[in-house]
C-alpha cells in the first residue's frame, strides 16, 4: 500500500501532487463558503483553453535545446498584429479568425527564424537573451502602435486621430467565437468546446510532429547536440526549427487568447506574458532541458485552475485580494525552482 503510494507520488511528482491537494482544499473551502463552484470551474476551463497554446509553445523550444522560450512576446506581438489587421478591416466570424491566425502564423514564422538565428549565436544563454529580446521587442512595438497606419476610428485615439489605443475591444462577431462553438452545460459547468478542441488539436499536431523524422531529429538535437551531429543532423537548423515552431505557436496562441478575452491589449501588456506560460509548463513537470506535450497540458490545467479558483476563495476567507500576489509568487517561484534543478525529475 505504502509502496504503491510512493510509486504514485514518484510518477506524478511532488510539486504536482502538492498543487492538486491544494486545489482540492481550495474547492472544499469554497464549497463551505457557498461559492458558486460550477462557475469557478467554467472559468477555469476557459482559462485553460485561452492559455494552453502559449504554454504548448514552450515545448518545441525546449525540445530543440533552446531552453524555455522567454522570448515568447515576439510571437505574442505577431498574434496581436494578426488580430489588429482583421479588426482594421472589420472582418468578423470564422473568416476573421482564420485570417488572423494565418497572419499571426506567417509573422511568427518569419520573426521566429530571425530570433532563432540570434539564439544560435548565444548558446547556453538562450533564456537570458530571450527574456531581454522579449522585453526589447515589446518596448520597440510601443512606438509601432503609435505610428502604425491603422485607420479604424474604433481603434485609434479619439483626440489625436492617430495611434492605437491601449485596450481595444474585439468585434462582437469575433469575441469568444471559439468559446461559444458547441458550448454545452453539464452539472452547471459551461464547457467551451470549440476552445478546448482547438487546444487539443494543437496538442495532437505537435504530438504527431514529435513522432516524425523531423521531430525526432529536433528532439535529438536538443537532447545531445554532439550525438545529433554524429547522426548527420544539422543542430543549428533544428534549433531554428524549434524556435520557429515555438514563436509561431505563441502567435497563434495569442489570437486564441484575444478572441476569448474579447480584448486586444497593446503597449506594455505583453511584457510579462512569457512568465505564466513558462511557469505552467514547469509545473507540468518540464525542465529547461526536457518537455513534453503532456507537461504542457497538465501544467496549464493545474496552473490556470489554481489561479482562477484561488482568487475568489481567498477573498471569501480573508478580507482583501491576494490573488495577484499569489500569481506572482507561484509563477516566479516555480520558474526559480525549476531552473535550479538540473534534470526534469521533479
Amino acid at each position: 500500500m505504502i509502496d504503491s503510494l510512493k510509486r504514485i507520488v514518484k510518477a506524478v511528482g511532488l510539486p504536482r501532487l502538492t498543487i492538486v491537494l491544494f486545489l482540492v482544499a481550495l474547492l472544499v473551502i469554497g464549497y463551505v463558503n457557498r461559492l458558486p463552484i460550477p462557475m469557478l470551474l467554467s472559468n477555469s476551463l476557459v482559462r485553460v483553453g485561452m492559455n494552453g497554446i502559449m504554454v504548448l509553445a514552450m515545448v518545441p523550444s525546449v525540445q530543440s535545446g533552446a531552453g524555455l522560450n522567454f522570448g515568447l512576446p515576439i510571437g505574442i506581438i505577431a498574434g496581436l498584429i494578426g488580430m489588429l489587421v482583421v479588426m482594421e478591416f472589420k472582418i468578423g466570424g470564422f473568416l476573421g479568425l482564420a485570417i488572423a491566425l494565418l497572419i499571426a502564423c506567417v509573422l511568427g514564422v518569419a520573426s521566429g527564424y530571425v530570433y532563432g538565428l540570434i539564439l544560435n549565436r548565444v548558446r547556453g544563454q538562450e533564456m537570458m537573451i530571450g527574456t531581454y529580446a522579449g522585453f526589447s521587442i515589446v518596448s520597440a512595438m510601443c512606438m509601432f502602435w503609435i505610428l502604425a497606419p491603422f485607420k479604424n476610428p474604433e481603434m485609434i485615439w479619439v483626440i489625436s486621430g492617430k495611434g492605437l489605443r491601449t485596450t481595444l475591444p474585439v468585434s462582437d462577431s469575433l469575441t469568444q467565437i471559439l468559446d461559444k462553438s458547441w458550448e454545452f452545460p453539464i452539472f452547471g459547468i459551461k464547457v467551451p468546446t470549440g476552445l478546448l478542441l482547438t487546444f487539443a488539436l494543437a496538442c495532437v499536431l505537435l504530438g504527431v510532429f514529435n513522432q516524425t523524422k523531423l521531430g525526432i531529429s529536433m528532439r535529438m538535437a536538443g537532447a545531445n547536440p554532439a550525438f545529433a551531429m554524429s547522426c548527420g543532423i544539422n543542430v543549428d537548423k533544428m534549433r531554428i526549427l524549434g524556435t520557429v515552431l515555438s514563436i509561431a505557436l505563441g502567435a497563434m496562441g495569442m489570437v486564441i487568447y484575444c478572441q476569448s478575452l474579447g480584448l486586444v491589449q497593446l503597449y506594455r501588456a505583453p511584457l510579462m506574458m512569457a512568465f505564466p506560460a513558462v511557469a505552467a509548463v514547469l509545473i507540468g513537470g518540464a525542465s529547461a532541458r526536457k518537455a513534453t506535450v503532456w507537461n504542457a497540458v497538465l501544467g496549464t490545467v493545474l496552473f490556470q485552475t489554481l489561479l482562477t479558483i484561488a482568487l475568489p476563495v481567498t477573498r471569501s476567507v480573508i478580507e482583501g485580494d491576494i490573488s495577484e500576489v499569489a500569481k506572482t509568487i507561484i509563477s516566479n517561484g516555480m520558474i526559480l525552482y525549476a531552473l535550479t534543478r538540473k534534470e526534469g525529475d521533479g
Binding site: M220, A223, N224, A226, F227, S230, R289, K290, E343, G344
Partner: peptide
C-alpha cells in the same frame, strides 16, 4: 566518447 557523443543519457 560514449557519454558525450554516443548516447542520449536521459532517453
Amino acid at each position: 566518447d560514449r557519454r558525450g557523443v554516443g548516447l542520449l543519457l536521459d532517453e
